[in-house]
Design a protein around this nucleic acid. Structure first.
Lengths: 219, 219
DNA sequence: AAAAATCTGTTGCAACTGCAACAAAAAGAA
DNA sequence: TTCTTTTTGTTGCAGTTGCAACAGATTTTT
């Protein structure tokens, strides 16, 4: 129940947050571990994960799952910040464990309120910052996915991660199984490719610890 | 040379635009048809295409090209609105024909100026709207690319396009060759798949005119 | 501590995809 | 109109990938 360390409310005092919760028609929900929330049910809203851990995933016609993002307490989500407009019914919020959520109507952020409170400007700026970050995150994802082979996707992802870590040695931000979902490839095929890459001396890997060895060769 | 119909300057009068051009340190450039502009040369800037036609593409190590977006007069581009932070040197603006461009420092938009002019707020809101749109565009792209097979990618793209057109009959927004670049697949392999899909009665296609026939089956 | 559920690692095989190399059609330029 | 360039359409072939089906290692739950 702590919104003070949510990036959406950065630079907003706890008193103002209380004020906002009244001003904006917000509502909270509690979901059980494993429960799914269809994103078409939260159109026009911005959600914040207050407690627990959740994922945004896509499950399409043939049942294949794609991990869109992982949410931790304070994470902000919603269609403008996350998913396409078209097949919202394929998007789900999946609770890893027991979760508390709060929702706000999107329009409260973009439109000035009648009393033109000062914190509206701050909120707008915060939302702006979140959006910029989101664009960069998605651009990275597109970059990874735009490669044609599993190997090229992996190398691209590893290079980006290494650049963020400012080191050729880094820890994967999620499990190997989730990595396969992230690069949208078959897990076993990815394992096979990872093995080959290790044997060719491109990288070392001990569980989630990765060390890139020869960076910058062919893709 | 007309910024009035650029979405970045929506709701800003021509007089104010003139003022802004002075206030913001802007500079213009002219590029020839076919000329490439490396995006690492325009870090921290927001560009607007004033005249001509251009593309944002990525060319990576092995020389394969990926179409990131197409720019028409009034289009706004720049790293926050377009491409990832990491390998900027792989990103290029490619002029289809002779182009005029104008660049602004990014910070002018996000930071309030000393005289806190009113139009700064409007610009911020405009940039916000552009960002939201960009997130949605990229989410669509991720959605398309997250499918594993060429067929699934095509169907996903066609469904999204059909949804936008509110009809199962629509015209491709770019050439078939560009479509292959968009879905990050080999062109000939894509042609082969399109042919198979036509034969299976999934769709009709006359050049860029597409008609989806059986929507909602398996992917 | 034992049992259940995940995650990691492997393999054979069929199917799909990328590559290379053409030919024909269409669009632009001279 | 003719020439040139770009786009579209095809095919064989080799290599990669997805699928299915396991087995062992970890982690979580009971």
């Amino acid at each position: 129940m702590d919104l003070t360390n949510c990036p959406l409310f950065e630079d907003v005092s706890p008193e103002e947050i209380d004020q906002i919760l009244h001003c904006f028609c917000s509502n909270t929900r509690h979901l059980q571990a494993g429960e799914l929330l269809n994103c078409s049910d939260i159109v026009g809203k911005i959600g914040v994960l207050l407690a627990g851990e959740a994922k945004i995933i896509r499950i399409d016609y043939d049942g294949s799952r794609t991990l869109m993002e992982t949410l931790t307490p304070g994470s902000v989500f919603g269609e403008a910040l996350a998913f396409a407009n078209s097949p919202l019914d394929q998007m789900f919020l999946e609770c890893v464990n027991s979760c508390d959520l709060i929702f706000f109507a999107y329009t409260h952020f973009t439109k000035r309120c009648a009393n033109s409170c000062e914190h509206h400007n701050i909120l707008l700026q915060n939302l702006f910052r979140l959006l910029s970050k989101k664009v960069l995150t998605m651009a990275s994802r597109v970059e990874v996915l735009s490669h044609r082979s599993i190997r090229a996707k992996l190398l691209c992802f590893f290079r980006i991660t290494a650049a963020e870590a400012k080191s050729t040695r880094f820890t994967l931000p999620f499990s190997i199984t989730a990595l396969a979902e992230y690069i949208c490839a078959d897990r076993s095929a990815m394992m096979r490719e990872l093995k080959a890459m290790k044997e060719e001396g491109l990288l070392q890997m001990d569980r989630r610890q990765v060390t890139l060895l020869s960076v910058g060769e062919e893709a």
